[in-house]
Design a binder for these strands. Structure first.
Lengths: 211, 211
DNA sequence: TATGGCTGACCGACCGGTCGGTCATAATAA
DNA sequence: TTATTATGACCGACCGGTCGGTCAGCCATA
């Protein structure tokens, strides 16, 4: 299946170039010629590393998924109590998005969303119908032990973990999306506080909050 | 600007056909020829009603926005206390999505998302017409009085309304999206309960909950 | 001279939009 | 009433531009 990438660095450069082009022009409008130009190579060379545009798309998907997963995995491994850990996850998600937005170039968030859209519509894979939702659920699963720990400790409400994690993750994703869309109209720190006030405290069994 | 739609019913039929085609093939891959076929008319006729594919796209956007807005407006007008109203809004959003999913045909949610995606991409990189994010914020605004009422009544926490509504709305949107992607893996009623448990109760000043 | 990574001119399928023509109906004339 | 003409909604073959993918040859290296 894999076409033997001869030069690993160039392989990565093509993926990075594809990300840039997809983000600027969209996945279906993103042109191979532009990816080649952005990568500083000829169009034909792309086809030495990838069989098709679809294969480039899948590589980008994989890149993003691993990046996201790694970030969350690291957070979860830290030695903190569940409440503090959830708090950090909320902050982390928000901050990393904000960082992407502020460094000028086209943000990952947009392309990540489109990747899922494309993937889900099955435009790309005839058979891979389950790839995308399965992948997503793999990410949810990562958080389940954390929630269970909090419930066992009596800090979190005794919610059904699978569904609660789903809500948490989905809500966070939506907030990220809308923040991206409206980033000029809201104050970052106030949003972060409000997120915790609503979502984290919605999770807690008892609240000892300011007002 | 408007090209005088001669036959109002046919105009609507084209929009409906476009929705169907966009949902199945995506916005940028959706073919005018297929829209014409789905509407049961010739391709040329499309251009008697719309100047371009972009204009069709905008008409679809408008259709969806008005539909969504109308649903929420109606809910907000009902005579209920703020808590119960938020609860109904959460239920309504979820139920209407679920209804769309179960009636087999391609769900609105997907195309709605892509509409925004396309719109934002143009907004960000194009000539800066702020149509889409402005439109979205108009929807947020709808909920602000509701939240203020709850805060004044002392039922909700005294959150900054604009930011709180943003969180609420964005979270709900994300949940809808993820539910769409993973609809086979979760129980609807349990999700609805969990949503209220986390999000509604995160909003409340004091909780009198079961567990 | 041989190898093979690399290249971009080129091919052909595809698709948004056009335009000359058709035809059902309406308006007018006989 | 019937014949003739005018209207414009409707159509789909066609055009021109676009873009994913190919391939014949270039060139650096051994």
């Amino acid at each position: 299946m894999t076409p033997l990438p001869k030069d690993e660095a160039k392989h990565r450069r093509i993926i990075q170039a594809a990300i840039q082009v997809f983000a600027e022009e969209g996945v279906s409008n993103g042109k191979i010629a532009n990816i080649a130009k952005a990568a500083g190579i000829g169009k034909g060379t792309i086809y030495e590393y990838f069989r098709s545009k679809t294969e480039i798309f899948l590589a980008v998907f994989e890149y993003y998924f691993n990046k996201l997963l790694k970030g969350y995995e690291q957070l979860i491994r830290e030695d903190l109590d569940p409440t503090r850990k959830i708090e950090k996850i909320l902050d982390y998600t928000f901050d990393s998005l904000d960082e992407q937005l502020s460094n000028g170039s086209s943000p990952d968030w947009l392309i990540f969303l489109e990747i899922f859209l494309q993937g889900y519509r099955n435009e790309i894979l005839g058979d891979g119908e389950l790839l995308f939702s399965d992948t997503l659920r793999k990410m949810y699963t990562l958080f389940e032990p954390l929630l269970e720990e909090g419930i066992t400790a009596g800090v979190f409400k005794s919610l059904e973990t699978e569904h609660a994690i789903f809500i948490l993750f989905a809500a966070l994703d939506g907030i990220g999306l809308h923040y991206f869309i409206n980033r000029n109209h809201y104050q970052k720190e106030l949003l972060k506080t409000t997120i915790k006030e609503i979502i984290l405290h919605g999770l807690l069994k008892t609240d000892s909050r300011k007002v």
